[in-house]
Amino acid sequence: MEPTAPVLFILGASHHTAPLAVRERLALDETRAAGLAEQLRALPGVTEFTLLNTCNRVEIYGVARRPDTLPALRAVVAQTTGCAPAELEGVLRLRHNHEAIAHLFSVASGLDSQVVGETEILGQVKAAYDAALARQWTGPVLNRVFQKTFQAAKHIRTHTGIGAGQVSTATVAVDLAGRIFGELDTSKVLVVGAGDIGLKTAQAFQSRGATSITVASRTLSNAEATAAQTGGWAASLAELPELLTAADIVASSTSAPGFVLTAELVAAAMKRRAARPLFLIDLALPRDIDPAAAALANVFLYNLDDLATIAEGNLAQREAEAAKGRVIVAERTAALWPQVAHSLNRPA
C-alpha cells in the first residue's frame, strides 16, 4: 500500500534483486553519484537522503514529504544510470517506513549481505552516512535512523554469532594459523608458488600482522615480483629444505604435477626445528603437499577441501545465527518506528 503521509523510504537494488551484470550498470562512480545527488536535491518533496553504493548494492535512503514524489525516484535512477525504466522493473525495490528501517538495520549488521555477517558493510554504511552528513543531505529523521542503525548493528554483532568463523579459504587459513601460533606478528610465512592464489594468501597473512613473508618459486623473477607486492623476500624452490626449517606457516599453490613438499622433506625439516609447530596449507590442485606429512607430530596440514569445509560450516552457522539477528532487527524497528513516525509528521 502506497503511503499518503511523509515517508521514510529506501529505493535500491542489491544482489538479491539484480544479477552482477545489472549491478555493474547501476554502480555509481563519483561523477554519477554527484549527478544522482543533484537530481534528488531537485526533486520536490525529498528533504533528506543518503546514497549507499557498494559492489553488491546501490540504495537511496531518504525522506519524502510528498509521497507522490516516490514514482519519480525510479525515473531519476534510470536517467542517471542510463538504464531503461523497463530494465529496472523488479530490480529496484522500494520500501517504506518501518520496512525501510528494518532493511537498513539488516544491511548495516551484515544480515542482508551476500556473505552473511561480513563486517565491511558497516564501514560502508558509516562512510555513506558521513558523506551525506558532510554535504548536508541528511536531516533529523535520517540522522536519528542512522545513529540507531549503528547501535543496532553493533548489538547484533555482539549478541549473535553472525560474524563468527571465517568464510573464505584464505581467511580460514589465517584463522587456523592463529589457533596454532596465537599472534602472527612473529610467525614466518613461506608462500610456495608465485601465482595469484599465493599472492592473495600472503596478503591475507599480512593483514593479520605477519611481517616475515618469503615467496618461493621455480622461477626466481616470478617470486621477486610477488614478493615485491607483499614486502617480502624472494627465493628459489631449490632452497626449500632450508626455507621449510625456518618457516612456521607454509602455503603452497604451485601448478606442479607431483608433490612439491614430500613427507620426507617435511620430516627432515621437523627434526631440525624441534619444538615449533608447522602449519602446512595446500592450496594447489593437484596437491603440492604429501598427505602423509599430516601424520607427523606438530605438523598441521590443511588442503583446499578442508578449508572449504570449514568455510561452509562457518557460513551455515552464521546463517543459523542470522535468525537471532532478525529477531533483534524486528524488536529494534518496532521500538524506533514510533519516534521516526512522530518526526516525519512534525511540520518541516
Partner: peptide, 8 residues
C-alpha cells in the same frame, strides 16, 4: 582453546 604455541 588458546593456541598451541601459547599452551606449550
Amino acid at each position: 582453546l588458546p593456541s598451541v604455541v601459547q599452551l606449550d
